[in-house]
Computed example of a mutant assay.
Amino acid sequence: MKKLILILSLLSVFVIVAYQFKPVKQATNMIVGSIEKTNHINEDSLTIKSRVNIPEGYKRVDYPKGSFEEYLRNYKLKAYGSKIINYDNTDYFWQGGHIGILEIPVPSNGLQQCADALIRIRSEYLWDNNRKDEIGFNFTSGDYCSWDKYADGYRPIINGNKVTFSKSASKNESKANFYNYLNLIYMYAGTLSLYNELPKINDAKQLKLGDMLIKGGSPGHIVMICDEVINDKGEKLFLLFQGNTPAQNVHLVKNLVDTTISPWYKLEKDAVIPVSNYTFYDSKFVRFK
């Protein structure tokens, strides 16, 4: 009898507390609702543009055919469900943050990390579109290293923070030598050099395909905008892809915070923006020249 009375008393207390904290239940329902995923994914599609559906009320921002923006939007993807593979052919430890793997090889040397992957994508575009004279990047020291000079045989002589260039190789404009050049850039450039070198985008309303969310540093991180939609109010949403450390497949990331629009993102300058397994706490944006 005493046990029954105790149980009834506890139930009464629970009912009273539950009633008093009714807003908590409402908040819980909101959280549960936000976890319900909206299906923006076409699993049988093999490009960024066709893999991800446009959210209701939005339309894609148009860009000229042949532009870097259209190049990114139509980048080829591996089959849906493909894993992120590290440079040494091992599985990346976490497979929960992506919805697509880009068809870009990962060198076995381990050099093509987060900034390097985006440098390669930009450089490949310039190469494929006969704009090779525009391929060039600053080292972290601030010294500019162009593909043209490298192809002509000039190589850096690095002494601490001092860099000079000397012609020490024969002229070689081959694609294989181009990848040798990129390996050099991977070694001496990174998020810090890109942040210092590239133009800053101070108004998030001006962001476009190809712009990058960046934290310059050692370590830092960087991701690239690869698709863009806009609604009648002028509000934009973006898709993002990233490389990572260790060197691994470039992948199209989920939005793990707002699953109702995932994989689309809202981007704001100076905001806290979690992207896959990295959080940008003071978001800054840059653009390739």
Score class of each variant (00 low, 15 high):
51 R>E: 00
76 K>P: 06
97 G>E: 12
187 M>L: 12
227 D>G: 05
130 N>Q: 14
97 G>D: 15
85 I>G: 04
187 M>W: 01
232 D>F: 01
39 N>Y: 10
220 G>N: 04
219 P>M: 04
64 P>L: 00
64 P>F: 01
16 I>W: 09
251 H>S: 13
120 R>F: 02
186 Y>Q: 03
94 W>L: 15
120 R>I: 03
36 E>V: 15
61 V>H: 03
1 M>G: 12
106 V>Y: 07
58 Y>K: 10
18 A>K: 08
174 S>F: 06
215 K>N: 08
29 N>W: 05
8 L>K: 07
221 H>S: 04
126 L>M: 10
15 V>K: 04
237 L>Y: 03
133 D>R: 13
181 Y>R: 10
116 D>K: 02
156 P>A: 07
117 A>C: 06
86 N>E: 14
209 L>G: 01
86 N>Q: 14
10 L>W: 06
234 G>W: 06
283 S>Y: 03
137 F>M: 05
182 L>H: 05
242 Q>K: 11
102 L>M: 13
63 Y>M: 03
140 T>L: 06
278 Y>T: 12
82 S>P: 11
118 L>W: 04
145 C>D: 08
84 I>P: 11
254 K>D: 06
192 L>S: 13
201 I>K: 00
62 D>V: 07
201 I>G: 01
59 K>I: 10
236 K>S: 13
177 N>L: 02
122 R>A: 08
230 I>T: 11
151 A>L: 09
69 E>K: 11
73 R>N: 06
37 K>L: 13
141 S>M: 05
166 S>Q: 14
234 G>P: 04
202 N>F: 02
110 G>S: 08
3 K>D: 11
128 D>I: 01
277 N>E: 12
111 L>F: 08
56 E>H: 09
27 A>Y: 13
263 P>H: 04
241 F>H: 14
115 A>T: 13
284 K>I: 00
208 K>M: 09
211 D>V: 02
171 K>A: 11
86 N>T: 13
272 V>G: 00
124 E>K: 12
137 F>T: 07
88 D>A: 02
267 L>M: 11
204 A>D: 12
191 T>A: 12
30 M>F: 13
38 T>E: 15
221 H>I: 00
261 I>D: 09
103 E>G: 01
233 K>P: 01
